[in-house]
Design a binder for these strands. Structure first.
Lengths: 240, 240
DNA sequence: CTGTATCCGTGTTGATACTG
DNA sequence: CAGTATCAACACGGATACAG
């Protein structure tokens, strides 16, 4: 016997939601879909084009990206912008509130860095690397140090500064920086988190730097990955 | 007999991962699955039993809960504990590192509270309500106020304190609290975020309070929901 | 060149029923 | 109470075709 399509549904397919006033549940309704937070991450440092996003997120297919961008736009997290001529291209950027998601993104990344299962030597893209500086700057060590840094990573320019123990960064050319780096995200990771000597990285073509060498060393010393969580041995000794 | 079980699967189905050293991507590998963060939220205030979790998260089915708990345990976020006799039941709790996910959970909730689409009057469970106090306490207003508060919400006891501009809370009975509340999560929401008069809520059976009435009022005044983000008008909105 | 829509194989998620 | 088994529905990712 055939069953007829029961269309009790009102109209919209009514996306699956957590029906809950809890902020967390609503947050998951907003950005809980696969890839959503990674798309937001890619936009945190400045607007990007569709194809930039695809290139930055291999594994994310075009149709899914379209869907995520549409959803994020409907939710007022992302907005579609058209750059004025002569560029005249469409880009996606974060709304002011969308930018506030940075805290959330950094909090998750910071937490996950301590995961026992985190493989720190996987490939990394330039946005992820730049954001990692925000997380891993040692504010104590930075003290009142203030400097401007330019980066050209995998072809993308970033201007950054350290000020008041905080690392700021956005896409764009730096003007008269104190230090300038050029190379790959992986090269940066080796330098800042692996503490590899700069000349070794330069030899292998991964990273070049301009500026005072002593300053560069002091700058590198400001960053360190958080310690990893060591799970206790499971000895069936639970605390009451 | 119809079709035989084809077991072509090699061994581990190799869970879909974001192959990326980015902390965020790894975080999403850890807790990006649907319901994972909500399970963690439910454990933030203390260990819970399987059936407590099911009751707290209507809509989450048993098999999915089992799967999430197993994954979270493998990832050293959750641990399975057996309470000593006479209780002698199994409970799930967060590991020390798992507890550190609180920052992430609160960051997401805090951000989402400002969503234009957030319906603040949806049902709320007691954990979500208690955590909201952490987010929405006005540290300025609290100043150096210090007090202990007991709650009995939908049958679950919580002990809380305000100290140094921070709200602390965990499951358990409070000893000699300055204030004590008893009622529903919704009643608390009405009192603290809707600023409904206490006696009105008491009449309707949603919330009772014990302690100095003036103190209670001062306490309530410490909390407020963040302002909502107002999207700018779009000149030409393609999709309404 | 920059996206967008559609089809399709596959894996993930969710609801019900059931077992220790 | 604490989960497993089964199956249906959906989301994802890839390919491809299409529109501005």
């Amino acid at each position: 016997m055939e069953l007829e399509k029961i269309t009790t549904q009102s109209k919209l397919p009514q996306k699956r939601r957590f029906e809950d006033a809890c902020g967390l549940a609503h947050g998951l309704d907003l950005v809980g879909e696969r890839w959503a937070l990674l798309v937001i991450r890619e936009l945190l440092l400045g607007p990007r084009r569709f194809s930039d996003l695809r290139a930055a997120l291999p594994g994310l297919s075009a149709n899914v990206l379209t869907q995520r961008l549409t959803e994020l736009e409907e939710r007022h997290i992302v907005e579609r912008l058209r750059l004025p001529p002569p560029a005249n291209v469409q880009v996606y950027g974060l709304t002011p509130w969308g930018k506030e998601a940075e805290e959330l993104v950094l909090a998750m990344a910071k937490w996950a860095y301590r995961s026992p299962g985190h493989d720190r030597m996987l490939p990394l893209n330039s946005t992820a690397m730049m954001l990692s500086f925000k997380i891993n700057l040692d504010a104590q060590a930075a003290g009142d140090m203030a400097l401007r840094i330019g980066f050209l990573i995998d072809g993308t320019p970033y201007r950054a500064r350290v000020e008041g123990g905080v690392f700021h960064v956005e896409t764009g050319e730096a003007v008269a920086p104190d230090l300038a780096y050029e190379g790959t995200a992986r090269g940066l990771a080796r330098r800042f988190y692996g503490k590899a000597p700069l000349d070794q990285l330069t030899e292998s073509g991964m990273l070049r730097a301009q500026g005072d060498a002593a300053l560069e060393q002091r700058f590198v010393a400001l960053f360190a990955l958080p310690s990893r969580y060591e799970p206790a041995e499971r000895g069936s000794t639970p605390t009451a």
